[in-house]
């Protein structure tokens, strides 16, 4: 089967005052229709940059420097801006982190809903309106018809995120990128939104890229997971393997730093020492070696590739390579 999305060796760079900064590098993964891909990592690891590269919203200073992004057999890395606009919001859409600020405060919900619907579905204003109401009902917004006339500030954060989801799903996208859609919401609302997204996904064949730093959310939502560190993929696996058998020391560190309610009270929650290196002074060798408990001389000198452990599991770690080598 042909993949819906195939990212090959993506490298995204940003132009700063003097030099060019490589924000993400060597990103490759695939995503099929109906699948949910979780992308985890700390702030600044390149999760959002990866997704913005795919939807082509890097802004003036950012650009895809290398690699290909095949979406429906079209390379988005080569697509012109005007062709991209036909895909964006139509076949690929995106939900952002901050529901409080991601709607325009001076336009009504209706106005903002209808805008995209009219643009991509070529409906009349009246048809677009009733379709927008239908979409709002689908994301379980009560009094959808009145909400159309409301301005964003009268809605709660959870309701606004529902509106954003309704907007993103209106044109029945093949790919939905959700960039920390529940991070800014409180836990009960978070659960409702996740539930909603799961249901909507089951109804359609939409593939979802779910970006988060919350492993709990990943466990609930994702089919397969990519762990990112310092602009690279460090581990890739299906969700069960990743939680049961994390191979990369970074993933293991992340897992260990999840608080468990059944733990002894005195036990300190473990954390990964040190901080993420900045793109300007990336360490030589493995990018994680400065913080890794298993660091070897090889890690400090040579850059590891993403080694294949089995069909679905990959890890960017020398240990994995050695382990596999020893077995053979």
């Amino acid at each position: 089967m042909k993949h819906l999305l195939e990212v090959v060796n993506l490298q995204t760079a940003f132009q700063s005052e003097k030099s060019e900064i490589i924000a993400v590098d060597e990103i490759s993964f695939t995503l099929n229709a109906g699948e949910t891909l979780g992308i985890v990592g700390e702030s600044g690891c390149g999760k959002s940059i990866t997704s913005l590269s795919i939807i082509g919203l890097l802004g003036k200073k950012g650009r895809v420097k290398k690699g290909n992004i095949y979406f429906d057999n079209e390379d988005l890395a080569q697509t012109s801006e005007s062709d991209f606009r036909k895909i964006r919001g139509n076949q690929i859409s995106m939900i952002f982190q901050e529901p409080m600020t991601s709607l325009n405060p001076v336009f009504t919900i209706g106005n903002q809903m209808i805008e995209g619907i009219k643009l991509h579905m070529k409906l009349s204003t009246k048809e677009a309106r009733s379709y927008a109401i239908e979409m709002l009902e689908k994301v379980r917004i009560p009094r959808a018809e009145e909400v159309m006339k409301e301005y964003p500030h009268v809605l709660s954060g959870g309701m606004r995120q529902r509106v954003v989801i309704a907007m993103a799903l209106a044109c029945k996208p093949k790919l939905l990128i959700a960039d920390e859609p529940t991070t800014a919401l409180d836990v009960t609302i978070q659960a409702q939104i996740l539930e909603l997204m799961r249901n909507l996904k089951e109804e359609s064949e939409t593939a979802i890229m779910f970006i988060t730093h919350d492993l709990g959310v990943i466990a609930e939502m994702a089919d397969k997971v990519i762990v990112m560190y310092a602009g690279q993929i460090v581990e890739e696996a299906d969700v069960f393997t990743l939680f049961k058998n994390p191979k990369h020391p970074y993933t293991q560190g992340l897992m260990a730093s999840i608080p468990h309610i059944e733990y002894e009270e005195e036990e300190r929650l473990s954390s990964i020492p040190g901080t993420v290196p900045t793109p300007q002074n990336m360490p030589k060798g493995c990018r994680f070696h400065t913080r890794c408990p298993y660091v070897t001389e090889q890690c400090k000198q040579e850059r590891p590739d993403l080694f294949q452990i089995n069909d679905t599991h990959k890890s960017r770690c020398w240990l994995v390579k050695t382990e596999k080598h020893n077995k053979e």
Partner: peptide
Amino acid sequence: QDYLRTARAKGLREFVVTNKHALKN
């Protein structure tokens, strides 16, 4: 502002993003 990114994510032209979404604010 974030809402301009939302507007761009809808596939709106930069002209509309600037002169409708940004300008009114």
